[in-house]
Amino acid sequence: MLKRGFLACALLCCIAAPRAATHAPFDCGDIAVAFYEHGALYYRDGNGRWTGIDKDIIDELGKRLGCRFHGFVDSRVRIWTNLKGNTLPMSVSGLATPERLQFARFVPYFTARNYVLLQKNTSPAVHDLASFLAEPSYKVAVIKSFKHGATFEPWLSELRRQGRVYETADYSSLMRLFKLGRVQAVLALNTSWAPLVRQRDLGEGVKIMDWAPKDVIVGGLVLSRQLIPEATAEQFALALHAMREDGTLRAIFTRHVGAELAAGMFNF
């Protein structure tokens, strides 16, 4: 149902001919867009300035469509609350669910999947979801309000039933728990852990486990059905399609996660 709903929404936003996006700028006016800090999607660079895939996507849309985006940083929980309450027009890198499709349209621009980051001293016997469950003292941390896909959600539900899940407000808090050893595992998209590996912030010996290789998480623009006209959503979809076709998306992904991971972010 989730996949069908998402595809229906994506098709709704992409009904015009893709190459029509080469016309003169489409003035969509002033739009507030909420960002959230999360790995390569949105982070501070070495000079303390905000950067990331999501910022580059929004900047490029502004150039192509003439939109005046007013970005700000907020927690993911407040973002979803405000979108649902029709007080926020737009956010980024959101995952569609049947509930969310009631109040928002989603325009996809990347795919990823969740990996499990394990502490280096976890038991060698822990090699999949079932064996982690079998270690009653082991806990996992996730970001509150995040959705983790078909494989991980039932697993997390069982861990929650056993009181073995920490829910954090943001990515920084998630990684702090992990580095302090308060939890044995965290769930992270490859767009999240890849920059940490490149910067060596994870340290040597952290185990990166691919326990759901068939899962696909589709991230996209999140557009309020009440506050963003459907015609504007269609223009966003056209522009993103053009960015994919002309190599702009690949260049943005490569800049933040490297060429190897970037190549696998187009399965939408």
Rank of each mutant, 00 (worst) to 15 (best):
R176Q: 14
R176A: 11
R176W: 01
R176L: 07
L177T: 05
L177D: 07
L177C: 11
F178K: 01
F178H: 01
F178V: 02
K179T: 02
K179Q: 07
K179W: 02
K179P: 00
L180E: 15
L180W: 13
L180Y: 09
L180V: 10
G181Q: 02
G181W: 01
R182P: 06
R182T: 07
V183Q: 05
V183H: 03
V183Y: 03
V183D: 04
Q184H: 02
Q184R: 08
A185Y: 10
A185S: 10
A185Q: 08
A185W: 06
V186Q: 00
V186C: 05
V186E: 00
L187I: 15
L187D: 08
A188K: 05
A188T: 01
A188V: 01
A188W: 06
L189Y: 04
L189K: 08
L189E: 12
L189P: 02
L189F: 09
N190M: 12
T191L: 15
T191K: 11
T191M: 10
T191F: 12
T191C: 11
S192T: 15
W193N: 03
W193A: 04
A194C: 14
P195G: 10
P195W: 07
P195V: 12
P195T: 09
L196P: 09
V197S: 07
V197E: 08
V197K: 07
V197W: 05
V197Y: 10
R198N: 13
R198G: 08
R198M: 10
R198L: 10
Q199I: 00
Q199T: 04
Q199V: 01
Q199D: 04
Q199K: 04
R200N: 04
R200G: 00
R200Y: 00
R200M: 00
R200T: 05
D201I: 07
D201Y: 09
D201S: 12
D201H: 11
L202A: 12
L202D: 08
L202C: 05
G203Q: 07
G203I: 06
E204T: 14
E204F: 12
G205D: 03
G205P: 04
G205N: 03
G205K: 03
G205M: 04
V206T: 14
V206L: 13
K207N: 13
K207R: 15
K207D: 13
I208V: 15
I208A: 09
I208F: 09
M209K: 15
D210I: 11
D210G: 05
D210L: 05
D210S: 03
W211V: 01
W211S: 06
W211T: 06
W211K: 08
